[in-house]
Design a protein around this nucleic acid. Structure first.
Lengths: 121, 121
DNA sequence: CGTATACTGAACCATATGGCTCAGTATAGC
DNA sequence: GCTATACTGAGCCATATGGTTCAGTATACG
């Protein structure tokens, strides 16, 4: 889990980079749905929606099962833990860089004032 | 703030869906870098790297400034707050659904009974 | 001034993406 | 059995992506 299998991220972030697919995830969060139901929700053909579901399934975000004629889609086994972790790590780095900038600003203030008591170095 | 400007996500998640670009973000997290430096790091042409930087810049994740001949790239003003929030919200929905599944699993337990499938809380 | 460096832009290429239609196959229900 | 439903697969189309080369332009520096 500590290892970030980069390859996975290509698929999952790629899957998230489309508004329709994010919408599908949201809808599946409310309730499972058939391909037909999803296609209608997003005003597109069955075939088009099937591709989107395929992408989501490939990324492990959705799982499907066909019973009779109907393929039911639901949220997949994989959550977005690793992706959340990656972003969180990035955000910390980003924040750190920004803090450095704050420090620079602060140091400049300190210089001009020559009175700084509360230095947080 | 509660408004999620979906259009933005296309760009940012799209930018994250490529290993090279994620790598660039990590490198820029350590230190600012020129296009040339980045291109060398990732073994690709200047022109190729410039495109990646362009994508990241478009997504607001990187900002660049040209001084003399050198264009220096740094982490952009935009962090990934909204993206983190989206994923977090999804994860909660996902977890909720999974809890329902846990209930199902528990209901099925009476059947197997002996096998120790420990439920994660 | 002359040359090496750093980038830029156009153009090309192969492949992927996001949609569609159309022609199937399989199942539900009368 | 017949028909409507639900999906599937092939294939088309336009555009985007990830990379390249090549021919510039602008700047640093001896």
């Amino acid at each position: 889990m500590a290892q970030y299998s980069q390859a996975h991220f290509d698929a999952s972030f790629g899957a998230l980079s489309d508004a329709t697919r994010r919408g599908v995830l949201e809808q599946l969060g409310r309730a499972d749905a058939s391909i037909t139901a999803l296609a209608q929700s997003f005003h597109m053909t069955l075939t088009g929606m099937k591709k989107h579901v395929g992408v989501l399934e490939q990324a492990g975000l959705v799982s499907t099962e066909k019973v009779g004629r109907v393929r039911t889609c639901k949220l997949g086994l994989r959550g977005l833990e690793e992706e959340a972790a990656w972003i969180e790590r990035y955000r910390q780095i980003w924040a750190a860089r920004f803090d450095q900038l704050d420090i620079v600003v602060e140091e400049l203030k300190w210089k001009e004032k020559a009175n700084g008591r509360k230095k947080r170095k």
